[in-house]
Amino acid sequence: MPPENTAFPPFDALVETHSRELFSYLWRILQNEQDAEDCLQETFLKAFRAYSGLTHADNLRAWLYKIATNTARNHHRRNSRTPVESMNEDEELGSRDQDPAHVVAAQLSIRQVKQAVMALPEKQRVAIVLSRFQDLPYSEVASVMGISEEAVRANVYQAARKLRSQVLAEELEHA
């Protein structure tokens, strides 16, 4: 059990503080609500079993992200579904945006966006979501993914580039 000088919050406090943000994270990288929820539950069950064996409480948030990332990876491999058919599936995005310069992009449907996101290699998807949308600093993304900060930057760069070219391809198809 933890040494005296580190403050380990009770496990339930970790759940209360981080469950919503981890759900958002899992939703973003899995693009499927049910998968995100299954992985969220699995993440915290695993975290509980490992919690009493932790030796330091430095960065529990990054530790949870790491478990969530591994859980999502295994889940995805085991059970690779296509993104969920949601009721709003064919809703057009960006409808608030009346700027004619954005009209083409706005014609992308949620289905297409999901496909573009899921078409990214896993490392790139995880890297871009963690750093751009979960607001983890590069150093923490590196620790979550077990790669160097430089590799994180490269993965984010590649992901952004691919998403852009993917979207441009879609735009050309629909032109």
């Binding site: 759900f23 958002s24 954005h102 706005a106 751009r132 952004a160 852009r164």
Partner: peptide
């Protein structure tokens, strides 16, 4: 540098009720 639609979609994330129900 990503198109606005993907940016918005990911930025918005799941609806807050979804996260709450999952919680």
């Amino acid at each position: 540098d990503m198109t606005d639609s993907i940016q918005d979609y990911l930025q918005n994330g799941p609806r807050p009720e979804l996260a709450e129900q999952a919680h």
